[in-house]
Write a protein that binds this DNA or RNA. Sequence first.
DNA 1: CGGACCATTGACCATAGTCAACCGCCGTGG
DNA 2: CCACGGCGGTTGACTATGGTCAATGGTCCG
Lengths: 246, 246
Amino acid sequence: MISVDRVLTEKLSEHSRLSHDDLAAIRRIGSTPRELGPNEDLIRQGDVPHNSAIVLEGMLSRYHLLADGRRQYLSFHLPGDMPDAQGLFLTRMDHAVCAMGRAVVALVPHKELLRIFAARPAVGFAIWRETLIDASIFREAVTNNSARTMVARTAHLFCELFYRGHASNLTRGNTLQLPIGLTQLGETLGMAIATVNRTLAGLRSTGAMQFRNGELTVRNWPRLAEIGEFDPTYLHLKTMDLTHLV
Amino acid sequence: MISVDRVLTEKLSEHSRLSHDDLAAIRRIGSTPRELGPNEDLIRQGDVPHNSAIVLEGMLSRYHLLADGRRQYLSFHLPGDMPDAQGLFLTRMDHAVCAMGRAVVALVPHKELLRIFAARPAVGFAIWRETLIDASIFREAVTNNSARTMVARTAHLFCELFYRGHASNLTRGNTLQLPIGLTQLGETLGMAIATVNRTLAGLRSTGAMQFRNGELTVRNWPRLAEIGEFDPTYLHLKTMDLTHLV
DNA sequence: CGGACCATTGACCATAGTCAACCGCCGTGG
DNA sequence: CCACGGCGGTTGACTATGGTCAATGGTCCG
């Protein structure tokens, strides 16, 4: 398991130029770890949060709870992400956050964060930036679920997750662990579970990728990116070359 | 036409408690006005922005440009909104911003904004908050376009626009001017133009609302909100009662 | 061994996309 | 002044796509 400051400094300093003092301030952040079981909620729709979480291990997701009890998953969060940074300035949660598999997060009190922002504005800006990337990912999800075919949509999601996972050193070769079931995939992509299954079978048969038992295997990255119409600019990460995954 | 500081102070002080000095700083913001013709781009996907815009008049939208030339509209922006605040911390635009009808915006240099944030953190937090509400609206769009029927989806969009328009004093009685065509509606909601039309006809026949010639008329708000499964919490505005619109 | 849960598959059906024709309005130009 | 053309909206007929439902299989755990 990794520590909060390690994960945060790595993430934030990738794009924001943080001074020695900024980094020191981050290192002094007080946090309490919390372990979550599979499918356990970290925070629910309607709650008033006083902490923000940083993912240390596993995977979290955000979701809307619909009137009829169904879920709409909105995004997935890997180690280093802050899945509920928005709670900092919006009093009431408009969505829930839950663990996909077993997961560990670090909880940082809002007070603590606000104190740091006052002392070291650059840290605030860096986290602000993270929330903006978040928004960018949501925008892409709108487009993905509205304007793309089922195959492209599915491929795109896996592209994004693999790309982000790779940027965070979570991939092992051409594989990535994703504790997601077909039901959740359906509730993410806005398609019926049967369709998810058939679409995955289709993708498998193209030789571009396969997804089995919570493990994504990329067999042909350029092919997969093409099928998913994937252009990583919206992730605002350093450009990575994955063409060797063929 | 309204002035920048007027529009900004109104918007920001609705939720953030800004001190006298904060408001003074906002009043000193230097901006240049810019008029946009119908369908004119303010900024394009891939551009590197150095200004942020504040809508003064008319309506702007953000959209993704797809590989085949189609558009996916992501959000609409009314006077007081900052449709490209994200450019502050993300160097490259991952989407475009354009005027729907004729519109006027005020351009504020990023440098100027950053200077203010350094001097008056509360102003920064207030604008950060705006970008978080933005993100919340995107999340709702994901859910809307993925998990709701065509009717609900369409009704929900109009509910949101009317509610936000009402909060900004842009409604006249039960009407709101919306310079949007059926094609754009389709490219917003992820449905074919023919379906948009039929859905609108359906909504009209329920007596809940009608949309004609760029004018939305709400005939029965509770009914419309029910059809659209509309719950305004995600907008993080002061709660407004519209039940008198029957 | 039995049951729960998830994935898989097939058959059927509802829904919305496609295509094409038509309408109505508006602005232009003869 | 009217004729024409274009654009945006409207409508109908057909079709493709993906949702629904139901049955089966596989795996893990008690």
